[in-house]
Simulated scan of single mutants.
Amino acid sequence: MEKERGKYLRKARKVQVYNVIYDTIEVVVSLIAGFSSGSAALIGWGLDSIIEVVSASTLWWRLNGEVKGISEKRVRKRERATLYVIAISFLLVSAFITYDSISKLIAQNPPSWSTAGIVILVISLVVNPILIWYKYRYGKKLDSKELIADSKDTFVCLYQTIAVLGGLLAVRYLDWWWADPVAAFLIVPYALKEGWEAFQNGRKIDV
């Protein structure tokens, strides 16, 4: 049993490494494209990717600790810290998206077209479901609340990807200037819900 757990821990750790690498690319491309085009949705999506990098890095730290054989108490401490980081990540993203979306709605300033933004969004529609599947699978195998929470964090990113892409296309082809900030704002309720759940799970861990 311990040997099998070790195998899944190493696989889950590797997934987090891939997650960090890809999300770093997302951050660079989406923020450059977002600020260049004035897209609230792309900027919000890029900031969410920063949170994903932080979350995935923290989770790698927790998984790596268990792989290296640290004590059970230290593992639990890392589990709790990871869940708190995920919860705070959701809160920060929600706060920024709310502020930026409302500002853009008030200003009524539609974003410019961004080919680079569209390309990275489409690529993410392929990459994120793969990451979600592996995180959730290993989370179940390891009975890891933080891995499952991180899979939901990535699902938020996927959901936002669809919303942002739809919003940009609506601005471009339907001339709906409001679609971009509305697309960004759609993610907030789900993000807050999942952030609260991660926080509650963190509080339940006895260290």
Rank of each mutant, 00 (worst) to 15 (best):
1 M>H: 07
2 E>W: 06
3 K>D: 15
13 R>A: 12
19 N>V: 07
21 I>P: 01
21 I>C: 08
23 D>T: 14
30 S>R: 03
32 I>C: 05
37 S>Q: 10
38 G>R: 02
39 S>H: 05
40 A>T: 13
41 A>K: 06
41 A>V: 04
42 L>W: 13
42 L>N: 08
43 I>F: 05
44 G>W: 00
49 S>E: 07
52 E>Y: 08
56 A>P: 12
59 L>I: 08
63 L>K: 04
64 N>W: 12
66 E>H: 05
69 G>D: 06
73 K>N: 10
73 K>S: 11
73 K>R: 08
76 R>N: 14
78 R>I: 01
79 E>A: 14
80 R>W: 09
81 A>N: 11
90 F>I: 01
90 F>H: 15
94 S>P: 00
96 F>Y: 11
96 F>S: 12
97 I>R: 11
99 Y>D: 06
102 I>C: 06
105 L>V: 05
106 I>M: 13
107 A>P: 02
109 N>A: 15
114 S>I: 03
115 T>S: 03
119 V>Y: 14
121 L>H: 01
122 V>N: 01
122 V>Q: 03
123 I>L: 14
125 L>E: 13
125 L>T: 07
126 V>C: 12
127 V>M: 10
129 P>V: 00
130 I>V: 13
130 I>N: 05
132 I>V: 11
134 Y>H: 09
136 Y>P: 02
137 R>S: 04
141 K>L: 13
142 L>V: 07
142 L>M: 06
147 L>M: 11
147 L>V: 04
147 L>E: 00
148 I>S: 08
150 D>M: 09
152 K>I: 02
154 T>Q: 08
154 T>C: 04
155 F>Y: 09
156 V>L: 09
159 Y>N: 05
160 Q>H: 08
162 I>L: 14
162 I>F: 06
163 A>S: 14
164 V>Q: 13
166 G>K: 12
167 G>L: 01
167 G>C: 04
168 L>Y: 15
170 A>E: 07
173 Y>K: 00
175 D>N: 13
177 W>F: 10
177 W>E: 00
182 V>T: 12
183 A>S: 14
183 A>L: 03
192 L>E: 07
194 E>W: 00
196 W>Q: 11
198 A>G: 06
202 G>R: 08
204 K>M: 08
206 D>S: 13
